[in-house]
Design a protein around this nucleic acid. Sequence first.
DNA 1: ATCATAGTCGTCTGCCTGACGATAAGCACT
DNA 2: AGTGCTTATCGTCAGGCAGACGACTATGAT
Lengths: 252, 252
Amino acid sequence: MPYDPSAFPPFAVTVDLVVLTVRRHSLCALAVRRGETPFQGRWALPGGFVREDEDLAQAAARELAEETGLCVHDPAAPAQDDGAHLEQLATYGDPDRDPRMRVVSVAHLALAPDLPAPRAGGDASNARWAPVEELLEQSGYGRTGEPPAPLAFDHAQILADGVERARSKIEYSSLATAFCPPEFTVGELRRVYEAVWSVALDPRNFHRKVTGTPGFLVPTGGTTTRQGGRPAQLFRAGGATLLNPPMLRPEV
Amino acid sequence: MPYDPSAFPPFAVTVDLVVLTVRRHSLCALAVRRGETPFQGRWALPGGFVREDEDLAQAAARELAEETGLCVHDPAAPAQDDGAHLEQLATYGDPDRDPRMRVVSVAHLALAPDLPAPRAGGDASNARWAPVEELLEQSGYGRTGEPPAPLAFDHAQILADGVERARSKIEYSSLATAFCPPEFTVGELRRVYEAVWSVALDPRNFHRKVTGTPGFLVPTGGTTTRQGGRPAQLFRAGGATLLNPPMLRPEV
DNA sequence: ATCATAGTCGTCTGCCTGACGATAAGCACT
DNA sequence: AGTGCTTATCGTCAGGCAGACGACTATGAT
């Protein structure tokens, strides 16, 4: 049955990505420099139009691969290395969010281990990992030093929502392992929590908690000294996805 | 700056609503009967196109008011009675989810106290409150008796996601009060939890938990006997929105 | 050898929860 | 008025878990 196209207003639909990683003890997000108007030259979240024949999750995975080379970690094939976690975040559709036309953006959240260097379609100068406080500083969603230049569109809001989602989700799920390489130590995992939450955690209590939660971590047998100090056991992520009881975020 | 419309495919954008309430000790959702093809005569979630000049939240609030007469409870004016809770749920954009054309639906979740009777544009026979298990029975998202007829489109999936959101969110937030009238007793609140989770809770431990959580409930001074038995104190929702520590859902 | 750095194992205390006994205060009967 | 039923509310007790923190271990650097 044909449908009257005048019965509804046409929209452009995009996916935008909040890609988070932990670098040098701080939570960083991927930002790309805009080459076109509007907001030309400003930093923005990576994203693009959803294609005709594409699901939203497919579009987000495609954009993620284009920007970072990351494959999405498929829950059905958990053996693969270097997969990123990808989930839908929220949808932003303010009529004025893009001055050109009516655009509805379905934002996605991706969590990735620390990567070599970003490539935005091969051009490195147009993509970077930036600490999230820096990106949010001047937007009212974070406050510290001097405003460099706020993110384009409503991307500061989207980033803030993505960061908040990540912060709360590592409380009650094993998602923090998505920030780690395939094999990692308890200390590395703890530094992920500390970076994402911006807090210091007691190493002893943290160790007891994560090793005591069944299914969270499975030892691989190996050890490493890559952090200096006494060698630490290596683990990989276990099958458990939900942490019960949750990891408690200390109140500030 | 004009924009090349051939650069992106046009989409229709709709909002769909999962409106939940508790009636007769069970969690119910609002369903409307479709008058048009496709899925003519089948039950579906209420929803409609987003208008040109409308935000997504506005569109959802407008649809909610059209279908139920409910106003959205504005956090800025918490004094108003009978407001419903409304939040964005998720966005569904499978290319084949609507056979007519490419439709992206931004689903919203609404929680309302028990209402008189639904009105779908004035026509009562085309709208009803149905227990969620009944609506999900034949869809693979729930399983019991005989399939009456599955919900239209991917609405069973949307409903299942909305129910799961509500079930998990009342754990760590004070959202369960959105299912209650402005003044309510501890027992009424407990029956909300029991209906949403389909479990039985110990009245004594529940009472201790909710009255002991600061900011969750504030006594109004009044009492009621509308449940029979000893008169119970009346409360209204306090300012706290996050429950810490959370209300624990008993494992089955 | 000594020190600095991390990792790992224990202990103790306080809080919260689940299980459940006991009492209170209404209503519907007889 | 009493008996029984219902729901509300308070109290007690034991177990589990988290925060604070002491102690010991195993590396590399000086």
